[in-house]
Design a protein around this nucleic acid. Structure first.
Lengths: 146, 146
DNA sequence: CGGAGATACTTGATTTTGTCAACTATTTAT
DNA sequence: ATAAATAGTTGACAAAATCAAGTATCTCCG
């Protein structure tokens, strides 16, 4: 620890903080407020499927860094609640793309609104910090290359 | 979505990016490289127990925003691997404080070193950005108040 | 002092997440 | 045309998470 370079130390610290934030944030997730009955992961999946932008299951597995069979299970549960639909792709009949049902889209919108609301840790940041954070994270997640 | 204020939009985006980063990160976790046989959560718990700083199980449950019984299970598994010890507190005989065993401390150190080195996305950031990120996350997680 | 209520942790039942290996169907590449 | 790769599913199972109920201990108040 003492022998750690400054840059290493920062990377390490950033990792720890991100993990802490991840867990801390679950407390504020709509899931724990009863009105939705969604787990944190289900919330995240709903967030990842943008309305009108079908998402192949394989891409979801990639984004979640998990096994494809896990995605099958996640989607099974979301589908059984009528939030998501599997749509077979015309170009490649192996792939099934995920689409929000109208109910799923409504739920997602509610979710986003709820997460953005006041008094959550994120909204307590100054505007500048929030914009800076977004920029740094965009670089990290490397969304530009998609 | 269209009706969302700019600040809400940023908070929302930051939330999505943080979640994405969290999942992307798991791919690079030591757990998935075989040499340790620890799940991401076990890594995080190990990270949270600082050597020489016994951590009451209730505080761990708080930090993880989860039920106490979940912590019991997590600690059971870590204890059975000889990484962690439950130490009954002398002042309050209800609480059990978690301590790293020598083996646990070694594992934790390795973990930190490994997390800092690796070609993680984090190390691609400039030094300045990394420092800024750490500062903003500290504000988010509100560690100052501890 | 003594009991009421709060707190820390455990146990048992149950659901959800997550992994792996094996399988089907389809596509790509040789 | 065949072989190899890819997308998804299934089944078996471990790990993570929740809830309700229970034990032990502590705190506080009359």
């Amino acid at each position: 620890m003492a022998a750690m370079h400054r840059s290493e130390h920062d990377a390490c610290r950033a990792w720890q903080l991100l993990m802490k934030f991840f867990f801390a944030q679950r407390e504020h997730l709509p899931s724990s407020e009863g009105e939705f009955d969604l787990s944190p992961i289900q919330c995240h999946v709903l967030h990842l499927i943008e309305p009108g932008r079908p998402l192949p299951m394989s891409r979801l597995a990639e984004t979640l860094s998990c096994d494809a069979s896990n995605v099958t299970g996640l989607v099974d549960r979301l589908e059984s609640r009528g939030l998501v639909r599997r749509q077979p792709s015309p170009e490649d009949r192996r792939v099934k793309a995920l689409q929000l049902t109208p109910r799923g889209a409504r739920m997602r919108a509610q979710l986003l609104r709820r997460m953005a609301r006041r008094s959550l840790p994120l909204s307590r940041l100054s505007r500048d910090k929030r914009r800076t954070l977004v920029k740094i994270l965009e670089a990290l997640v490397d969304e530009g290359s998609i």
